[in-house]
Simulated scan of single mutants.
Amino acid sequence: MSETERYPELGQVVQILQGREAGQFAIVIEKLDSRFVLLADGDKRKYDRPKKKNVHHISATNFISPEVQKSLLETGRVTNGKLRYAINKFANEILADLKKGDQLDGERRCN
């Protein structure tokens, strides 16, 4: 595996590339084996009904939520509220970066 395709960590925010939820963000809540992880976002995809995804169908971001990771490692569970909070925190950081003029500056203008 290359550096960009490294295996996602617990608590890491990933973008779904394939399937019905393509383009959405979720958090890795469990590693099943070398090919599959379980994802949840705390909203449409709750902790108790996670989505099983092939690691080749997701793109890992470099954002790992310390709160989610700590909760999963200590108790083996995480609240849906914590998942939603982590994704919102990630989204706010990405939007803040984009406002600074990062890569999507010219691509988003359709008018």
Rank of each mutant, 00 (worst) to 15 (best):
H56S: 14
G42T: 10
L32S: 06
H57S: 12
G11R: 04
E21S: 11
K51Q: 12
Q18R: 14
E21N: 13
V14H: 03
F25T: 05
A22R: 14
H56E: 15
P66W: 05
T4M: 11
V55C: 06
N62V: 01
H56W: 08
R6W: 09
V13F: 02
Q24T: 14
R20S: 11
F63H: 10
V28T: 11
V14I: 15
Q15H: 07
K52T: 13
I58M: 06
V28I: 11
D48W: 07
H57T: 09
F36R: 13
E30D: 12
K44P: 02
L17Q: 14
A40M: 07
G11N: 10
R45D: 05
R6C: 11
I29W: 08
F36P: 00
E30T: 02
R20C: 07
I27R: 01
E3T: 04
F25I: 03
R6V: 14
T61P: 00
R20E: 15
E67A: 15
S59C: 12
G42H: 04
A26D: 08
R6E: 15
S65A: 09
D41E: 03
D48H: 11
L38T: 00
L32A: 08
E21V: 06
A26R: 04
I16D: 09
N62R: 07
I64E: 13
S2E: 15
Q15W: 04
K31G: 06
V55F: 03
I16H: 01
L17Y: 02
Q12A: 12
V37A: 02
V13C: 05
K46T: 15
L10Q: 12
V37D: 03
G42W: 02
D33F: 01
H56C: 10
Q18P: 00
L39Q: 05
Y47Q: 13
Q12H: 09
P50Q: 09
V55H: 01
A40K: 01
V28P: 02
P8G: 09
E3V: 05
A40I: 04
K53M: 14
D41P: 00
D41W: 00
L32T: 10
S59I: 04
A26P: 00
D43R: 12
Y7G: 07
V13I: 15
T4L: 13
E30L: 08
E21R: 10
E30F: 04
S2H: 10
E30M: 05
I29M: 08
K44D: 14
E5N: 08
G42S: 06
A22W: 02
S34H: 12
E21Q: 13
A22G: 07
F36I: 01
R49S: 15
S59D: 09
I29R: 02
R35Y: 11
Y47H: 11
D43I: 08
K31N: 10
A26G: 08
A22N: 09
E21L: 12
H57M: 08
D48I: 11
E9I: 04
D41S: 00
H57Y: 13
R20P: 04
E30H: 03
K53T: 07
H56K: 15
L17D: 11
L17E: 13
L10S: 11
A22D: 05
V37Y: 01
F25H: 13
F25A: 05
G42I: 05
Y47T: 11
I16Y: 02
I29C: 06
I27M: 08
Q24P: 00
V55K: 03
I29P: 00
S34Y: 10
G19D: 09
R35I: 07
V14P: 01
R6N: 15
